[in-house]
Design a protein around this nucleic acid. Structure first.
Lengths: 121, 121
DNA sequence: CCTTGACTTGGAGCGCGCTCGAAGTCCTAA
DNA sequence: TTAGGACTTCGAGCGCGCTCCAAGTCAAGG
């Protein structure tokens, strides 16, 4: 069950342009090809694309995603390093989340002051 | 009690370059000047810079911060619109926060699978 | 008087992450 | 046979938010 680039893009919630870009950027390896030269994505590809979009949407830079991908391709012995990379990222995301929440509290406070003065809105 | 640009930058946690950029970008209005032509920031300036950095670090685009600033300068009658702008932003930030947390859960799950296979790390 | 250092301006440059355009290939259906 | 449409590659372009540079001004201290 192999998917075309547009099917994969649809499924992953990114554009076909982005999928090609990711491949060029070293985030995807050895995407299969149909006889016509067109890309065909396997379920494993899709699972990885799905995970990498999670890394991306938590703000992991492309470079670091590539690093993670390269470790994964290098074999099982890199699991400790992959773990460390993911844990470091998680910590950063949590810190960022906390920071955002603090800022949001300030904004909420401001909203309250407006509401008090503009009861109707 | 007026501050120099470097004092203000220090206090706000941004660079002096950034403060000048914000001014050029229309986020700050009428920053005072010393006789020498050097900028002098008032406490009101600092309070606004402080709030705008909160908007920025919750991801509000420069354009929208400017819009908010312009409304504030236009007078009290714009309070309902400012309120609406802030509320819309808050909703977006909350949605983004929720999305990030979902992605983080996936990453945490992956971390767990690594930990299970690499008990020492 | 001269140096030092913080400041000024305008504009250029940069890093990131896409996003798009042009020109070409291939398959399918009318 | 031909038209349409989905795909290919390579490289250029873009939007954002800074970040920095060059050349100049000014005030204070030695």
């Amino acid at each position: 069950m192999e998917l075309t680039i547009s099917e994969t893009a649809e499924a992953a919630g990114v554009s076909a342009h982005t999928l090609r870009y990711y491949e060029r950027a070293g985030l995807l390896r050895a995407v299969g090809r149909a006889g016509s030269g067109h890309r065909r994505y396997s379920e494993r590809d899709l699972a990885w694309i799905d995970f990498l979009t999670k890394l991306r949407s938590t703000g992991m830079p492309i470079r670091q995603v590539r690093r993670y991908a390269e470790l994964a391709w290098a074999g099982e012995h890199t699991e400790p390093e992959r773990l460390a990379l993911l844990e470091a990222h998680r910590d950063q995301v949590r810190a960022q989340l906390a920071e955002t929440e603090r800022c949001l509290a300030r904004i909420d406070f401001k909203i309250d002051t407006y509401r008090e003065r503009n009861p109707s809105a």
